[in-house]
């Protein structure tokens, strides 16, 4: 069934991956956006988003995963996450203190509340997800290298 140059795993794994990877990504985004209301937050959401990309890469091979997010895209996303987090911190300096929560707090238990905390969550998730994805890409490309050589 599987041809010689067909990257990735078998048909069963590919079909199941096609069905589940969107749900995994959606769950990661849900945890990320509700980080200030429910358990979760930027760290867990970022790792789950990275895991959904890893899932695509393991099932379909690395080319398909690079269509979703390339290596340079992951690097840019990590930089954007770090800069966004620093920007939130430095904007607080304009109101008087580093990491000041300067945005109006809004209604408690609503999605748009808690000032800068959701923005920081998104920044942290970008950084963690892109960083772990690029770590995994580095390890996997390294592993495929000897088979290409022979």
């Amino acid at each position: 069934m599987s041809r010689e140059r067909d990257p990735g795993m078998s048909l069963i794994v590919k079909t199941i991956t096609r069905l589940t990877v969107g749900l995994i990504l959606l769950f990661g985004i849900y945890l990320l956006l509700h980080g200030h209301l429910t358990p979760g937050g930027g760290f867990a959401g970022g790792v789950i988003i990275a895991l959904s990309l890893v899932h695509v890469m393991l099932a379909f091979g690395k080319d398909k995963a690079f269509e979703v997010l390339s290596v340079s895209g992951a690097k840019a996303l990590e930089g954007i996450g770090a800069l966004l987090f620093l920007a939130v911190a430095l904007l607080g300096l304009a109101w008087g203190a580093f990491f000041l929560n300067f945005v109006p707090k809004g209604e408690v238990f609503e999605l748009f509340s808690a000032g800068t905390i959701p923005v920081s969550n998104i920044a942290i998730a970008c950084k963690v997800g892109a960083g772990l994805f690029s770590i995994f890409v580095a390890l996997v490309i390294m592993k495929h290298e000897p088979t290409e050589k022979e």
Partner: peptide, 25 residues
């Protein structure tokens, strides 16, 4: 006072003690 976040852990890591998170990043 307070941060407006229902999750106390999120308000600790991203508001009260955000320096830790910066170092982690």
């Amino acid at each position: 006072g307070g941060t407006g976040a229902a999750n106390v852990v999120a308000s600790v890591i991203l508001d009260y003690r955000a320096y830790d998170t910066l170092g982690e990043a």
